[in-house]
Amino acid sequence: MDEEEKPVRRLSSIVLIIIVVVLALSASALYQAIDLYLKQDVASGYYLLIGFLGLAFSIYMLLQTRRRMRRFALKTTPVTTTITCQKCDFKNLREFERGDFILKEAGSCTKCDGTMLISAIYRELKEKVKEERF
């Protein structure tokens, strides 16, 4: 039940070409920046800025596309069934099975032979606790 399926989705070729071109231009701008810096030219600063901006842009684009592709999956959280003995309160936790429902009798207790009852069915989400300002 805990499955994650991914559909086929390729990176657009146009986007890929743009990223490659920007990467090549950024690399040459950085090279030019070093060259001009050695010649003590003030324009080296501009090249450095452009080079880094281009590099940042292309890396960001690549990461964004990867992130989008990862988000393209359907996640399912496991659902837990809790079975409790009506007599001795013994609890048994297991993964949900088809046919389970809350307040269904689920056999007899292994400890005291009392009646076992499905007392809870839920999914537990483990969310990152963020401190909210509001």
Binding site: L74, V79, F96, R98, G99, D100, I102, L103, Y122
Partner: peptide
């Protein structure tokens, strides 16, 4: 759409859903 997608999964397995909070209290 994502909510309906998880609903579909829950319905096909017969799992209790969040909307069942009222019937759960009554039960």
């Amino acid at each position: 759409a994502e909510a309906y997608s998880s609903a579909l999964k829950a319905f096909s397995y017969g799992q209790p859903i969040g909307d069942g909070a009222g019937p759960l209290v009554a039960a």
